[in-house]
Amino acid sequence: MKKFLSILAITILFSCHNQAQTNTKQKAVIDAEPVVVPLKDGKARAYFASGCFWCVEAIFESVKGVEESISGYAGGHTENPTYEASNTGKTGHAEAVEIIYNPEVINFTTLVDIYFGSQDPTQANGQGPDHGSQYRSIIFYQNDEQKKIIQDKKAALAKELDTKIAAEVYPFQKFWIAEDYHQNYERLHPNQGYIRNVSIPRLNKFKTKFPQLLKDDKKH
């Protein structure tokens, strides 16, 4: 009886944890037609989720051709998500970044390379010490060309590593900008414990791997 109750408890916990990603509203997000974000002042936009948005924002902002990286939420079925709501795992959203970039300097293909090259591509539902559906890896496409680039890169990486790649592939729908205090968090709080122990080491690992992509002021 005790064993049965333990199994039942684990099953319920697992079901609750994944409900946000398997309910009908979330399925509608995954099956939707992608939304195309038009160029604005010659700048394009791309959207990625790869663990804590503090880390991802800083990585992309170090890259030549990236004008700005904004922290927020994407991939879910809930309107107006907040940090607190997202952290419950029930909104369907993941912490994500909006990358504003100059397509004459850097293209979408290179952004995808940066995305996969700046994370543990095999870790599901999280990155590093951050665990939960709100930290899962998602890469968003806005058209069939981008979708093919993502799928080809993902398949090649899976073959190279001989393992499953965790990143989900979603049609882009909407990006919700996070609260003001999350923006530029790593730059504004360099001595905060998480930043020192997780974000900065992750950024430095990326910089070592892709030195040719860095802005001149980010090479040191």
Rank of each mutant, 00 (worst) to 15 (best):
Thr122His: 09
Ile12Trp: 11
Ala46Pro: 07
Ala28Trp: 00
Gln142Cys: 06
Val37Arg: 15
Ile165Met: 09
Gln19Trp: 12
Glu104Ala: 15
Gln26Gly: 02
Phe4Arg: 11
Asp120Phe: 12
Ala167Gln: 04
Leu157Cys: 10
Asp144Pro: 01
Asn102Gln: 10
Asp144Lys: 14
Asn102Asp: 15
Lys27Ser: 02
Leu39Ser: 15
Lys215Val: 04
Ser86Lys: 03
Gln21Gly: 02
Gln151Cys: 02
Lys219Arg: 12
Ser71Glu: 02
Phe140Met: 07
Asp144Met: 07
Glu160Gln: 15
Gly42Pro: 10
Ala166Ile: 06
Phe175Val: 07
Lys218Thr: 02
Ser69Ile: 01
Asn191Phe: 14
Lys2Ala: 10
Asp180Tyr: 04
Ser199Cys: 08
Gly89Thr: 07
Gly117Trp: 00
Tyr141Trp: 01
Tyr181Val: 04
Tyr185Asn: 09
Phe60Tyr: 14
Thr110His: 05
Ile7Thr: 15
Pro121Leu: 08
Gly92Ile: 00
Glu84Val: 14
Lys209Trp: 01
Ile12Asn: 09
Asn23Gln: 13
Val37Trp: 03
Pro129Cys: 02
Val35Asn: 15
Phe140Leu: 02
Gln151Thr: 13
Ser71Arg: 10
Ala46Val: 01
Gly132Pro: 01
Ala155Val: 03
Glu67Asn: 13
Ala167Asp: 06
Lys40Glu: 04
Leu161Gln: 11
Ala9Glu: 04
Lys3Met: 04
Tyr47Pro: 03
Ala28Leu: 00
Gly72His: 10
Ala94Ile: 05
Gly42Thr: 09
Ile139Val: 15
Gln123Lys: 14
Thr122Ala: 09
Thr163His: 14
Leu5Glu: 04
Thr24Ala: 12
Asn23Thr: 11
Leu214Asp: 04
Val112Asn: 12
Tyr47Phe: 14
Tyr115Trp: 07
Thr122Ser: 13
Gly75Met: 00
Glu67Gly: 13
Ile106Pro: 10
Val36Gln: 13
Asn184Lys: 15
Ser6Thr: 14
Ser118Leu: 01
Glu145Cys: 03
Asp130Trp: 06
Ser50Cys: 06
Ser118Glu: 03
Ala58Trp: 11
Gln142Lys: 10
Thr78Val: 03
Gly128Gln: 05
Phe14Asn: 10
His93Ala: 03
Ile165Trp: 02
Ile114Glu: 10
Gly117Lys: 00
Ala124Val: 12
Arg202Thr: 07
Pro103Met: 11
Ser62Gly: 06
Leu13Ile: 13
Arg45Ser: 12
Ala44Gly: 05
Ala74Gly: 07
Gly193Ser: 13
Val29His: 07
Ala44Glu: 11
Ala158Asp: 02
Arg187Lys: 15
Ser137Tyr: 05
Ala85Ser: 12
Leu5Trp: 10
Val63Gln: 09
Lys219Ala: 00
Phe175Thr: 07
Glu67Trp: 00
Tyr47Arg: 10
Lys40Met: 02
Pro38Gln: 15
Ala85Lys: 13
Pro190Lys: 15
Lys205Ala: 13
Asp217Arg: 14
Lys2Tyr: 06
Gly51Asn: 05
Lys207Val: 07
Ala96Asn: 04
Leu39Asp: 10
Ala124Asp: 05
Gln151Ala: 08
Leu157His: 11
Glu33Arg: 14
Pro34His: 10
Ile59Thr: 14
Ile200Glu: 04
Val63Ile: 13
Gly117Phe: 00
Phe210Val: 08
Val37Glu: 11
Asn18Thr: 09
Asp180Gln: 13
Tyr170Thr: 06
Ser71Met: 05
His93Gly: 03
Val198Asn: 09
Ile139Trp: 01
